[in-house]
Design a protein around this nucleic acid. Structure first.
Lengths: 219, 219
DNA sequence: CGCTAATCTAGAACAAGTTTCAGACTTGAT
DNA sequence: ATCAAGTCTGAAACTTGTTCTAGATTAGCG
């Protein structure tokens, strides 16, 4: 019988049940495997923090995490997969942090903007890491869709949390989608030096108005 | 003295005057150079139309356009530069096309949405080409900022054209920025199969409401 | 304990973007 | 027409992501 169970299939077909869990379903990992996975993600984040996307070199990640190159690829089938997983990891962390201090704004729009700006400031502290993660996210092709979707759901969750709405209207969900679009794209323009921090702030605040505009009590 | 003038500096420092011209400034090209440049862009678009980003291989582009690899790199210092330039080229074309048939909508928001959906349909006809161009655009790092900015200005021009506003307010310009963000990001989600065409339509229509919301006559 | 299937390792090999170099070719100026 | 400077070419080399292979290890099971 198998020893350490298979880590994760290359193409993660949508599982039957279990659609929103943090981990899609894949067979449980042994302790050593879990440790390897953590070492890899840690090395990835560390290298990314240094020099961004380019500094995350698969050979180096493998060496830093004391894992053979082939093993690294078994855990993460591509550099993009690795960085997207790194982002999932960081996002979970951030969601936890953000939860602790709920935003103070009066309106939902203000709260969402405040939350996103808080997240943005966190990213500013590790701009290289942000670069690596965001670039990977937007460069990801179809083979990474499940993982990218997971990141998207997590982001949606953060925004909905900030809104503090129990039952968002379909219109509000559309607004949230647009906010996510803006968030990602604004990050990119900032990371590539084409927009200032102030400009990103304005963009976020601008798009967040859509929320109140579509609020059930207002509309 | 120089023969065929230098094509373009690797790092295109911001020129003194001339900020919004289609071509930043670089010394004029000889006829043969212009022809080479066109052949290269044509080959790039052709290969991209076949298989998207991955299909645009520098060696193949060089061969298709009957130019040495080194020459290709002299004209376009990286694959990303090449594809962003390809996008500039296509965008110009599209702007010309869109100008001919102005959108019919009543409100500015409707007209912008209509225009963007028209552009979207054009992209759908060459999804692989769209893939190559958009992926390059969002993956571009600082070294491509001038070119990406140019694309952004062109996109802004298209949107402002659709709005039909002579003097947009600062708020409207913010809205336009957010629309561009949404446009790019929505394209990405569509290209990577994470959003349907219908969903993109909804997102565009949603974000376009920001325009009327910030219209001087309404606000 | 000993077996068997799966995993992990080290390292070579391959692919495509990028760089480099020597030599042939063009261009504009004299 | 000739020359100097800059370009283009063809080919090799280098880099880094990805794949492959043979053998050593490990995990679960009888």
């Amino acid at each position: 019988m198998p020893a350490e169970a298979k880590v994760s299939a290359k193409v993660n077909k949508p599982a039957k049940v279990e659609a929103r869990a943090a981990v899609p379903a894949s067979p449980p990992l042994t302790e050593r495997q879990e440790a390897r996975r953590r070492r890899i993600l840690h090395a990835s984040a560390q290298l990314a923090s240094r020099g961004g996307f380019d500094a995350v070199q698969m050979r180096e990640v493998a060496e830093s995490s004391q894992v053979a190159l082939g093993t690294l690829y078994r855990y993460f089938p591509s550099k993009i997969h690795l960085l997207v997983a790194t982002m999932q990891d960081q996002l979970e962390h951030m969601h936890g942090t953000l939860r602790k201090k709920p935003p103070q704004g009066e309106t939902a729009a203000e709260r969402v903007a405040e939350t996103l700006m808080r997240a943005f400031r966190a990213l500013q502290r590790e701009p290289h890491l942000a670069d690596a993660m965001v670039r990977a996210l937007t460069f990801a092709d179809r083979s990474v869709s499940p993982e990218v979707d997971q990141v998207s759901r997590q982001t949606t969750a953060i925004i909905l949390d900030a809104m503090g709405q129990e039952n968002p209207t379909p219109e509000q969900l559309s607004a949230v989608r647009v906010i996510e679009h803006t968030w990602h794209s604004a990050l990119i323009t900032w990371l590539s030096g084409r927009a200032s921090i102030a400009q990103v702030k304005i963009d976020i605040e601008t798009v967040c108005r859509l929320i109140d505009m579509t609020a059930p009590t207002t509309a």
